[in-house]
Design a protein around this nucleic acid. Sequence first.
DNA 1: TATTGTTATACTCTATAACTATA
DNA 2: TATAGTTATAGAGTATAACAATA
Lengths: 151, 151
Amino acid sequence: MVAGEAEEMTEGLAFLLARHGAGAQMMLRRALVSSGLTPRHMMTLKHLDTGPVSQQALVDMLEVDPSVLVAVLNDLERDELALRRRDPADRRRHIVEITPAGAAVLRRSDEILAEAEGELFTHLSPAEQLLLRDLLNRINVSPDQFTCTED
Amino acid sequence: MVAGEAEEMTEGLAFLLARHGAGAQMMLRRALVSSGLTPRHMMTLKHLDTGPVSQQALVDMLEVDPSVLVAVLNDLERDELALRRRDPADRRRHIVEITPAGAAVLRRSDEILAEAEGELFTHLSPAEQLLLRDLLNRINVSPDQFTCTED
DNA sequence: TATTGTTATACTCTATAACTATA
DNA sequence: TATAGTTATAGAGTATAACAATA
């Protein structure tokens, strides 16, 4: 027998955040299965729900590769949750907008997610959830800080 | 011009957590490049640093698939940061332990990570970092809550 | 010549199942 | 028959680069 002693190991805060972030992502994915959406499809619909935008604008909002967005929009358009039309003013652009069906799916998914979030944060009071949101919003996510210049 | 109006969109707390968790994971990955480690290699070394364990025990600690652990240990053993030996008491088992070189890499990586974490949480006071840790530890990560039983 | 969107492709990560050697 | 570890393979997710259409 070798693993008898279970010495405590302090987990770094970044590891903890990454681990529970992945857990939240998995929760979102599972909760949205019944809607036929991935978290990214859902986020895309949420952005479209604020009004029509070009794909380029969506790329910036969602911070995804253009080719990734193409696949997402193909799915949404196939299911008639969103549609693309050419911008008459600049025929290179596609203007994307949500359909009534898409808006309905979005609202239903929002309800499902509210329930799932309730489960996830069931041990946090509303005030603590606000606090968590505030703390998360204040972490430094600038991507160019870790340029690995040490050798 | 279509994307003129930038209406605010409230992001759910689970989405926020997932997004910043992914950011933390990327930060960890980049910070560890100079050590030649992935976050998972690092976590594995951290567990090994508390004493020799079987691969099965490591699988439980790290919550990864056995086949994933095999690849990680192959890397660590190739770089002589860890080693496997048969358990004489049960020759099916491999006892894994960290090498002095592995312990040295771990300590150096810990320093690098401390610096990177400092950057990541630079806008949070030590007390707020403790608070964030506490709040994260209290979110509900039981995986069997989202059985999608609604239709 | 630059920009928008698309396609094809490669790469990483992970999961699954079949296999071995031991018990 | 069950368990520990390994291997091979397939799938999802993402990134890269070349491309067509338009400006």
